[in-house]
């Protein structure tokens, strides 16, 4: 992410004037789209894992006799053991991994957004400098 940040930041301001400022921080529609795409990729990847695992349980419950009818530990079948106990470990691991990755992504994307803000500020300064120089030259000419 960070390696593309400079390029994205430079293009962002040129491509669109739509932006939202909070204090020193700026979102542009292009930077937000970058954030959105990365977050969507992360969330939908984890969601795919979640739904595949979760829905595979009723699939096996319906069609795999050894899963629902064969005791493996006292009265526990694989079906009962997974639904009453192991499924929670899956949920905890999945959410923990997701949150770590989402926090890291947030940090990277915040860094990108700050670079965009810095690039925007530099462009503004350059424009101001050029404008001032032009004005001085004009005054001198007169």
């Amino acid at each position: 992410m960070a390696s593309n940040a400079g390029g994205n930041a430079a293009n962002a301001k040129k491509a669109s004037g739509v932006q939202m400022q909070h204090g020193d921080h700026i979102d542009t529609i292009e930077s937000v789209d970058v954030v959105f795409r990365e977050q969507r990729k992360l969330s939908f990847t984890f969601a795919a894992v979640f739904f595949i695992v979760t829905l595979s349980i009723p699939v096996m419950t319906i069609w795999w006799k050894a899963w629902y009818a064969t005791p493996i530990w006292g009265g526990f079948t694989m079906n009962y053991l997974v639904v009453s106990l192991l499924y929670y470990f899956f949920l905890w691991m999945l959410s923990f991994t997701y949150i770590k990755k989402a926090d890291k992504l947030d940090a990277n994307l915040a860094h990108l957004a700050d670079e965009i803000a810095a690039a925007t500020a530099r462009e503004t300064d350059e424009v101001a400098t050029i404008t001032t120089s032009s004005a001085l030259e004009s005054e001198g000419g007169e």
Partner: peptide, 10 residues
């Protein structure tokens, strides 16, 4: 930008 932007939080 309100839904996915992060400037406010920063």
């Amino acid at each position: 930008m309100r839904i996915h932007g992060t400037a406010s939080e920063r």
